[in-house]
């Protein structure tokens, strides 16, 4: 029996949450997997908290806004505390279809990697996002190759599967804002195996991306710096 915790960091996702949860409940996974869903409410200003309370989920209700990294880490801490075997981070806006979870788990079973990333770019299908965003992702691919020596195409993807080792490490240290590319450097330095598997993503059904155009320059600078410091920091 494997216990999986689905971590859904939410900031103002009242519109898309109910459908996502019902999709997750209807999801058919192999017998040995036991799925629990955990919604992390990152101090939303809408009714996300009330909506989540009515659903059959574990609700981590943060008293202050910590940003996506802090929210995901809260979920990882819960997974560590309750001794889950696997944790999956999934966006609350419906960008990551629950059905794609099967591919992630299949990749985990096949490779035994500690971190599995759901990637939009290995096979080009589904929602591919805008040109500028793709440009940024190409840049991060190059940067990742430089810092980790691994070829990871979708380093900004927030669709990820953590095994026990990764949960433990992530609970101890996880970057605050724009955590995805930096955490890859961190995990790879700690010697974890990272694998990427193609998934199909859809256009967000509600809410707003944490990366908006006017902050994208800051995003690039901050993430580059964070990756650099993660690279030279002793693990």
């Amino acid at each position: 029996m494997m216990n999986i915790l689905i971590i859904i960091p939410c900031f103002n996702e009242q519109a898309s949450l109910p459908r996502l949860i019902s999709d997750l409940e209807n999801l058919k996974l192999p017998e040995k997997y036991n799925v629990s869903v955990c919604v992390v409410n990152d101090c939303s200003t809408d009714d996300t908290k009330q909506v989540a309370k009515k659903l059959d989920v574990i609700l981590i209700d943060l008293p202050v806004n910590l940003g996506i990294g802090g929210a995901v880490q809260s979920g990882l801490k819960y997974a560590l505390l309750d001794n889950y075997d696997l944790a999956v981070q999934m966006d609350g806006d419906g960008q990551h279809p629950p059905a794609e979870l099967q591919k992630m788990i299949a990749c985990y079973e096949e490779t035994g990697a500690s971190l599995v990333i759901g990637s939009r770019f290995i096979i080009k299908e589904g929602f591919q996002s805008s040109f500028l965003r793709r440009l940024g992702i190409t840049y991060f691919h190059w940067l990742n190759k430089f810092f980790t020596g691994k070829s990871i195409y979708d380093s900004t993807s927030g669709f990820r599967l953590f095994d026990k080792k990764a949960i433990q490490l992530g609970a101890r240290y996880y970057p605050d804002d724009y955590p995805e590319p930096e955490s890859l450097v961190f995990f790879s330095k700690a010697g974890l195996a990272i694998k990427e598997t193609p998934v199909v993503m859809v256009h967000r059904s509600g809410g707003q991306s944490s990366i908006r155009s006017f902050t994208s320059f800051y995003y690039c600078v901050k993430v580059t710096l964070a990756m650099f410091f993660s690279f030279i920091r002793k693990p």
Binding site: L62, L66, G70
Partner: peptide, 17 residues
């Protein structure tokens, strides 16, 4: 302070559960 603040918020949220 930010680091401590984050830790406290997480501990608190987990304790609520």
């Amino acid at each position: 302070l930010q680091k401590q603040n984050k830790l406290l918020a997480q501990e608190m949220a987990l304790m609520k559960i």
